Simulated assay, not measured.
Amino acid sequence: MNVEIISVGTELLLGEIVNTNAVELMQMCKELGFNVYHQVTVGDNPERLKQALQEAFARQADLVITTGGLGPTNDDLTKQICSQYLGCPLFFREDEAKKIHAKLSFLMQGGPIARSNYQQAYFPREAIILENDVGTANGCLIKKGKRMIANLPGPPREMRYVMNHSLRPLLESYCMTRLYTKEYVVLTTGESQLQDELADLLASQQEVTLALYAQEGYVRLRLATRARFWQEANTSFAPMEQALMAILGDRLSPLSALEDVDLAAVPEFRLQCEPNIDFLDDWCQDTRIAAKLVSSAPNHLHLFLQPDMMGEYFCMEAQFGINTYQEKLPCLKQARYNTMRIQRCLTQFLIRIAKEMKGS
Results as ranks from 00 to 15, higher is better:
Asn2Asp: 07
Leu12Phe: 12
Leu12Glu: 05
Glu16Asp: 02
Val18Trp: 05
Asn21Glu: 01
Gln27Lys: 00
Met28Cys: 06
Asn35Lys: 05
Tyr37Gly: 10
Pro46Met: 07
Glu55Val: 09
Ala58Ser: 15
Arg59Thr: 12
Ile65Ala: 13
Pro72Trp: 03
Thr78Ala: 08
Tyr85Asn: 13
Pro89Leu: 03
Phe91His: 05
Lys98Glu: 10
Leu104Trp: 00
Ser116Ala: 14
Tyr118Thr: 05
Cys140Trp: 01
Ile142Gly: 13
Arg147Ile: 04
Ile149Cys: 02
Ile149His: 00
Ala150Gly: 08
Asn151Thr: 11
Pro155Ile: 10
Asn164Leu: 13
Ser166Val: 09
Pro169His: 03
Ser173Met: 03
Arg178Gln: 14
Thr181Asn: 14
Tyr184Gly: 07
Ser192Ala: 09
Asp196His: 11
Asp200Glu: 04
Ser204Glu: 12
Leu210Gln: 00
Tyr213Ala: 05
Phe229Val: 09
Asn234Val: 04
Ser236Trp: 06
Leu244Lys: 08
Met245Thr: 15
Leu252Lys: 01
Asp260Thr: 11
Val266Arg: 00
Glu268Ile: 02
Phe269Cys: 09
Cys273Ile: 08
Asp278Val: 02
Cys284Met: 13
Thr287Gln: 08
Ile289Val: 15
Ala290Tyr: 06
Ser296Asp: 10
Pro298Cys: 10
Leu303Gly: 03
Gln306His: 02
Met310Phe: 15
Gly311Val: 10
Cys315Gly: 09
Ile322Tyr: 05
Glu327Thr: 07
Arg341Tyr: 10
Ser360Val: 11
